[in-house]
Design a protein around this nucleic acid. Structure first.
Lengths: 216, 216
DNA sequence: TTTTGTGAACGTGTTCACAGCG
DNA sequence: CGCTGTGAACACGTTCACAAAA
């Protein structure tokens, strides 16, 4: 199997969601074209993406919804449960912990950590926030992924601690580049960057009326 | 000025952050190489990105930190304030509203909306949550960007309402592709996709020990 | 005839390598 | 000599277009 591009994996995740919907609608078959239009990509893209993993369709017919869904489910590793630890239970970390959607997809938040004594011991959902110092001990229960929702200054340190604790995937929400060993998967979600790319777009894409600032 | 790629804009945002740090450290000059290493890109990339907007460096010396920072600030549109409305004040929407970091970068949350009567009227920070039906009226105060933090099913409808209210940029946090007119900038942050790409990586990148499932 | 699966063509973003300037 | 700015080379992802299969 050739190397899979990140964009392909992201789209797989989208296809999977569409397939869930379509299955609920009771459809048995779906063409690459229909699968594509719901996510705003081309049908060729869908077929290319899927062809990285096998031949799941039938020419002239399309794809069996239930079957394709199961295949993608297995490809994405959603046919098992993942144990997730959240580090940093400020607004964002807490929001993530309380969001039930992830659990539905196979992600269980099994531990929450913070450094702030005011937060340690606090109950969130059905977990108690623990001291970050307890991470190594807690990790012996087996933690697959860590979510970093701490302030920027603590982020790298927490990443190191997670790696040391044997975590193999990290979702970083802190606005800072993190360095981790190559055997650890790292994904960054940086709201600041998102806001700033929007601000760039609004600043440059010609507004309906007069242009905003003619670049002094 | 040629078309600017999205990746370039995202990196600009990163460079900006590094420049803030470096300026605080009291450095006056920085080379493309040093600017690059903090964000894990190549120095050529930094120079290419910057060259889209002008020649800000001096050969043999590097870039003047304060000057480059001001330039990028203007390019990203961070030298003004942006009025942001948050729609959907569940866990995530609330977290975003209460996060002070955006305000520091020029983004002011000036209104919050929800559909749930239990939430309408509630005080969050120094805003009162309003009925989403009041969006058109509230938008007459001038709203630049909208953040969609509603459940999936409401997302497209809210997007349409934001567009109708004259919003020109949307940050979508709901896990669903949205369709907006081309004059509206749209950015998606989809935590579900992030978790699932991590799950894919953990499922495929060879684990230290035995391989998980040999693809039945 | 419909729709997949896929090599080839294309376009875009990244890296290289060096000329140009301080 | 050091470092920027940039055309040229390269790598990679997307789209095209069609042969193969139902």
């Amino acid at each position: 199997m050739a190397r899979i591009s990140e964009s392909t994996v992201r789209r797989l995740s989208h296809y999977y969601r569409v397939l869930e919907e379509v299955e609920d609608e009771g459809k048995r078959l779906i063409s690459s074209h229909r699968l594509a239009e719901r996510e705003g990509v081309t049908s060729a893209q869908v077929r290319k993406d899927l062809s990285c993993f096998g031949s799941f369709g039938r020419r002239g017919l399309g794809y069996n919804v239930a079957h394709l869904r199961r295949e993608i489910r297995a490809i994405l590793g959603l046919d098992r449960r993942w144990r997730v630890a959240v580090v940093g239970v400020g607004n964002l970390g807490t929001a993530l912990m309380l969001y039930r959607g992830f659990q539905r997809q196979g992600f269980d938040v099994v531990a929450a950590f913070d450094r702030d004594p005011a937060r340690i011991g606090q109950r969130l959902g059905d977990l108690v926030v623990r001291d970050i110092a307890e991470l190594p001990a807690a990790a012996r229960g087996g933690i697959d992924m860590g979510v970093i929702a701490t302030p920027v200054r603590a982020a790298q340190e927490v990443a190191d601690a997670l790696v040391a604790a044997g975590v193999r995937g990290i979702l970083n929400l802190a606005p800072r580049k993190l360095f981790v060993p190559s055997h650890v998967a790292l994904r960054n979600v940086d709201m600041t960057v998102e806001f700033e790319t929007l601000s760039f777009a609004l600043n440059h894409l010609t507004p309906p009326a007069r242009r905003r600032r003619p670049r002094a």
